[in-house]
Every structure is written in C-alpha cells, then in structure tokens.
Amino acid sequence: MNAVTSNSSSVYQAGAAAQAATSQGVARTQRAAFIIMVAILVAAPLLGVYPVFMMKVMCFALFACAFNLMLGYVGLLSFGHAMFFGGAAYVSAHAAKVWGLTPELAILLGTLSAGVLGWVVGLLAIRRQGIYFAMITLALAQMIFFFSLQAPFTGGEDGIQGVPRGKLFGLIDLSNPTAMYIFVAVIFLAGFLFIRRVVYSPFGQVLQAIRENEPRAISLGYDADKFKHIAFVISAALAGLAGSTKALVFQLASLTDVHWSMSGEVVLMTLLGGLGTIFGPVIGATVIVTMQNYLAELGAWVTVIQGAIFVVCVLLFRRGIIGELGALLKKSL
C-alpha cells in the first residue's frame, strides 16, 4: 500500500515538474517575443516609418487583442465590437473637444463608457451562444450606429472633427508627434500586458475551461454566465480604450468607427494573426492596416485582396500566422 502511494506521489511530482518546466518555457518564449515587439516599436520611427501609421497599428492591435479575449479564450463570436470601439471614440472626442478635458481624462471616460455599455449589452446577450449571441451583438451595434448618425452631438455623417490632443496631465503637449507616439505605445503595451495577465490568471483558465466544455465547468461549480459577462466587460472596455486612443491620434471620431464593417475587420485581424494566441491579433492587425495603408490607391480592390487573403488563410493556415509559426517552432505564442 505504501509502495503504491509512493509511486503515485512520484508520478504526481514528475507531472507537476514537467508542467512547471513547460510554463517556464512558454514564459521565456513570450518574454523574448515581447522584447522584440518593443524593439520594433522603438526602432520604427528611427527607421523612417510614419509615426501616425504605427500609432494606427497599435490602436487596432489593442482592439484585436481585446476581441481575441472573447473569441479566442471564451469562444464567443461578437459581430458588434465596433460599438465599443467607435462609441468610446465618440465619447472621448466629445469630452476633449466640447468639455475641454485633458487627454488622459477623455480616454478614461471613453474606456469607462465602453465598459458600462459592455455590461449592459452583456446582460442581454451573454445567455445566448453561437449565432444567436453574434446576431444580438450585431443588432445592438447597429442601434449604436444609427444613434451615432442621428444624435445632434456626434456630427452626423461628418463625425467629430478637429479633436484637440491637448496636454497630458496638463504638462506634456501631445501635439508633438514624438510625445503622442510614446503615449500611444505605453497605452498599447499596458493593455497588451493586462490581457496576457488575464489569460494566464486563474480567471483566464476558467474562461478557457468554459470554452472547451461549458457543461463540465458548470458541474464543477463555476457560474459560466458570470465569468463570460466579466470577460465581455473587460473586452469591451479594452476595445473602448483602443477607440478612445485612435480618436485622439487622428483627431477624429467618425461613423466608420461604429460601422458593422469595423466589427468584420477585427474578426479578420484576429483570425489572420491566430485565434487564441497572445501575439496573433497584433500580427493580424499589422498586416491588415499595412494593406489598407499601402494599397489605398487600389480603392475597392483592397477589400477584394483582404477577402482573398482570408480565404487562403482559412484553407492553408487555419491556425493563423502566429498559430502556424508557433506550431512550427513548437512554441506557444
């Protein structure tokens, strides 16, 4: 009996040691990838890359990472995430231009508004799954779109233009491109690290358990709807943070930000980069924004090219760019 107990204990310890070694290996790999990403962000302006382009990439990368938290780690496909991204952009733009709030307060207000909207939408949608959840979020997003079109303070089809960047904490003038670039980079990196922390926390592990087998998670005593609702609010708030930041970068909040096509773009970014990976949405957003920027002269053909790339990705790279790269290197990215 003692021998059996001793053997079981040895097997458990060996399994725990192997799991710990794997976790440390994943942490080292992701730490190296993060350092490379930071180095690219630092070097890009020095190498002549247009700062506004890089800031746009960072805003959309944060948006895609927020969306990936829902789809990649909870398994909920939202067709309405543009309502949080664009809604927060309108709130921040209005707060900065009309109310004269400083940029950090305008962004904070936009992020909070997106979180509150996410809480309300989550109450209505989170109890549904699959196509029903997706359609509810799409319908509610269209309501926000028409509200943004008709409301007197949103500027209608013209949007809110000429949004002042202002002075950060009343001291740092964000009209300086370098200061604005550093500010956006700090927001993006902080949001990225926060998402990673959520994913690898006990809370994130429960989310993944719900994604894999919700009935079993419920049988273990977890309130699945509560966990999904919290994740939805976090995702909405981070999407709002991205939208608020973008409004200050481009000094504009427009209907494009709340249009259903924006929700479609973030789905494409996530799937292209790698669903359920940490760095996948960043790569996917970079690819899509780069195409939009450098192929803009092709007009409507950009959409056709994006569609073709999406089809190729689905057929040949089902795990996305980072997913396939991670599988090739046998590393978790």
Rank of each mutant, 00 (worst) to 15 (best):
M37E: 11
S92R: 05
S8C: 01
F145Q: 15
T303F: 12
S261T: 15
I288K: 02
Q292R: 06
L252T: 13
Y181K: 06
P152Q: 05
M180L: 12
V186W: 09
A247H: 01
K167T: 14
Q13N: 11
S219Q: 07
L298Q: 08
L248E: 09
D257W: 00
L268M: 11
S263Y: 06
L62I: 08
H259A: 01
I182N: 05
L108Q: 05
A27Y: 03
M269E: 05
N213H: 08
G86I: 05
V186I: 15
F188V: 04
N2G: 13
F232N: 15
T256D: 15
N68K: 12
L77P: 11
V287G: 05
V266T: 13
V57H: 00
D225W: 11
R216I: 13
L333K: 09
I288R: 07
P177W: 11
A17F: 06
F192H: 00
F133N: 10
P202Q: 07
L101P: 00
L238Y: 06
G72S: 06
Y73E: 02
Y50D: 15
V52E: 13
L189C: 07
K246L: 13
R28N: 04
G122A: 15
D223L: 01
F34D: 10
I218L: 10
F192K: 06
Y90G: 00
N7E: 14
L41T: 12
A89W: 02
T29Y: 03
A231I: 04
G156K: 04
S254D: 01
M269L: 06
G326F: 07
I172F: 07
P164R: 08
M83C: 09
L329N: 10
L268Y: 04
M54S: 08
L238W: 09
R318G: 14
G280I: 00
A141E: 04
L109W: 00
S235L: 03
G87I: 03
